[in-house]
């Protein structure tokens, strides 16, 4: 649901209140009627759902750029999906003020049988960008992707590098107020990586609010003025990037040591 209101720089660009996302484990992935029946017949064993995000509460003000870090499976990508409107929160509420653009995994929704140009227009239509606007940006997108005559060939003839370049070029051909970035940055060859890094920097400079999900701690300290650490769907820390990164690394180290200890114990019991 989108309503229009006068822009107000005093209101936060992103507001998340008591956010919770619950996954129903019975419904995940390619169920058939038979499985549902057999599940219903079987006793309820184990958990039927889990919270990918729980009690997540934060806001991003104008001019802030927030890095979301955490171990695998902490709920970082789910958080981005909620902010982008892809997943409805099971609990709580999210309010996004401004034009939102998400640079999630590149090249999602490419159609292998269509040409590069047609894929650009299709992607624009999926993202809800006006067709006139998209055609106006077309030359820029094509130029930035820099894949030569392949732009008129079917996408299935592209190399994976070319695919990634086109994807990046489409995803960043926007001027959003709120930018959501998943770790997609290291693609293509050296020169394209340099170019794409520059483009991201430009976007970050222009956007009013940014949420960046990354495993690259380098990016956190360069681009963000705030960081949030997620663990098992909960916010563990929120504040100065350097401090939060340090805490994250501490936790990672601790869990690595714990794992090693566990493994050593197993080895010992194996010997004894």
């Amino acid at each position: 649901m989108t309503v229009r209101a006068a822009a107000d720089a005093t209101l936060p660009a992103i507001e998340a209140r008591n956010l919770g996302v619950r996954y129903n484990l019975r419904l995940t992935r390619k169920t058939t009627v038979r499985q549902t029946f057999s599940q219903a017949l079987r006793r309820r064993e184990g958990p039927t759902h889990f919270w990918a995000l729980h009690d997540v509460d934060f806001q991003v003000d104008h001019g802030e750029s927030l890095a979301v870090i955490g171990p695998n499976g902490a709920g970082k990508s789910t958080l981005l999906q909620v902010l982008a409107g892809i997943i409805e929160p099971s609990e709580g509420r999210v309010t996004m003020r401004g034009k939102v653009s998400s640079l999630l995994t590149l090249g999602a929704g490419f159609d292998p049988d269509l040409t590069g140009i047609d894929n650009i227009l299709l992607a624009g239509a999926f993202m809800g960008i006006e067709d006139r606007e998209m055609r106006r940006r077309l030359p820029d997108i094509v130029e930035f992707a820099d894949i030569g005559p392949f732009i008129d060939a079917a996408l299935k003839t592209y190399s994976s590098g070319m695919r990634a370049r086109l994807g990046f070029s489409i995803a960043t051909a926007v001027d959003p107020d709120v930018l959501l970035v998943d770790e997609v940055l290291a693609t293509g060859d050296q020169s394209f990586r340099e170019k794409s890094r520059q483009r991201i920097e430009e976007l970050i400079a222009a956007a009013k609010g940014i949420v960046l999900v990354t495993h690259d701690m380098h990016w956190v300290t360069i681009f963000c003025n705030r960081a949030m650490l997620l663990e098992q769907g909960r916010v563990v820390a929120d504040g100065d990037p350097a401090e939060v990164v340090a805490l994250h690394q501490e936790h990672m180290e601790a869990s690595r040591l714990a794992k090693e200890e566990e493994a050593a114990k197993h080895r010992l019991t194996g010997v004894l």
Partner: peptide, 18 residues
């Protein structure tokens, strides 16, 4: 960009529409 521009506000979650 000036503050007079209309800004889309999107809100997710909270209640089920009829």
């Amino acid at each position: 960009m000036t503050t007079t521009l209309d800004t889309p506000v999107a809100s997710y979650g909270g209640g089920r529409p009829n």
